[in-house]
Amino acid sequence: MALLGGIYAPNTPTLIGDLGIRHEATEQALKDLGQRIQGLSPIDAVVVISPHFVTGTGFGLVNSSPLRQIFDFAGFPSSFYQVHYTPPGAADVVQALEQLSRQAQIPIAITDQWGLDHGAWAPLYHLFPAANIPVVPISICPELGPVAHEALGQQIHQLAKKFHLLVLATGSLIHRLDLWNQDMSSYPDDARQYLRVAKEAFGLGQWEILWNAPEVWREQAAPEGGELPLRVLAGAIPSYCAEILAEEEEFSAVSLTTVFFEPTGDKDACDERGFRTKSISEDF
Score class of each variant (00 low, 15 high):
Arg192Cys: 09
Gln193Cys: 13
Gln193Met: 08
Tyr194Asp: 09
Tyr194Glu: 09
Tyr194Ser: 15
Leu195Ser: 01
Leu195Phe: 10
Arg196Asn: 10
Arg196Tyr: 01
Val197Met: 09
Val197Thr: 14
Ala198Lys: 13
Ala198Leu: 08
Lys199Ala: 15
Lys199Val: 03
Lys199Met: 14
Lys199His: 12
Glu200Val: 11
Glu200Gly: 01
Glu200Tyr: 11
Glu200His: 10
Glu200Asn: 09
Glu200Cys: 04
Glu200Phe: 04
Phe202Cys: 07
Phe202Asp: 02
Gly203Val: 01
Gly203Arg: 13
Leu204Gln: 12
Leu204Lys: 11
Gly205Ile: 05
Gly205Asn: 11
Gly205Lys: 00
Gly205Leu: 03
Gly205Tyr: 11
Gln206Ser: 01
Gln206Tyr: 01
Gln206Asn: 12
Trp207Asn: 12
Trp207Gly: 05
Glu208Arg: 13
Leu210Arg: 04
Leu210Tyr: 14
Trp211Val: 08
Trp211His: 08
Asn212Phe: 10
Asn212Asp: 15
Ala213Gln: 05
Ala213Glu: 12
Ala213Tyr: 09
Ala213Asp: 13
Ala213Lys: 14
Ala213Asn: 11
Pro214Gln: 04
Glu215Pro: 04
Glu215His: 07
Val216Phe: 12
Val216Gly: 05
Val216Cys: 14
Trp217Ile: 08
Arg218Thr: 05
Arg218Leu: 07
Arg218Gln: 13
Arg218Pro: 09
Arg218Trp: 13
Glu219Asp: 14
Glu219Thr: 08
Glu219Met: 09
Gln220Trp: 00
Gln220Lys: 11
Gln220Asn: 06
Gln220Met: 03
Ala221Asp: 12
Ala221Lys: 04
Ala221Val: 03
Ala221Ser: 02
Ala222Glu: 14
Ala222Asp: 15
Ala222His: 14
Ala222Cys: 11
Ala222Gln: 14
Pro223Met: 02
Pro223Phe: 04
Pro223Asn: 00
Pro223Gln: 06
Glu224Val: 00
Glu224Leu: 07
Gly225Met: 10
Gly225Asp: 12
Gly225Asn: 09
Gly226Leu: 08
Gly226Arg: 09
Gly226Ser: 08
Glu227Ala: 01
Glu227Met: 11
Glu227Trp: 02
Leu228Val: 04
Leu228Thr: 02
Leu228Glu: 05
Pro229Ile: 02
Pro229Ser: 01
Pro229Val: 00
Pro229Arg: 00
Leu230Asn: 01
Leu230Gly: 10
Leu230Lys: 02
Leu230Arg: 06
Leu230Cys: 03
Arg231Val: 00
Arg231Asp: 08
Val232Ser: 03
Leu233Arg: 02
Ala234Asp: 15
Ala234Glu: 15
Ala234Asn: 14
Gly235Asp: 09
Gly235Val: 04
Gly235Trp: 06
Ala236Arg: 07
Ala236Ile: 00
Ile237Gln: 08
Ile237Val: 03
Ile237Lys: 07
Ile237Trp: 10
Pro238Phe: 00
Pro238Met: 02
Pro238Thr: 00
Pro238Trp: 00
Ser239Arg: 09
Ser239Asp: 15
Ser239Gln: 15
Tyr240Pro: 05
Tyr240Gln: 06
Tyr240Val: 07
Tyr240Asn: 10
Tyr240Arg: 04
Cys241Met: 05
Ala242Thr: 06
Ala242Ser: 15
Ala242Asn: 09
Ala242Asp: 05
Ala242Arg: 09
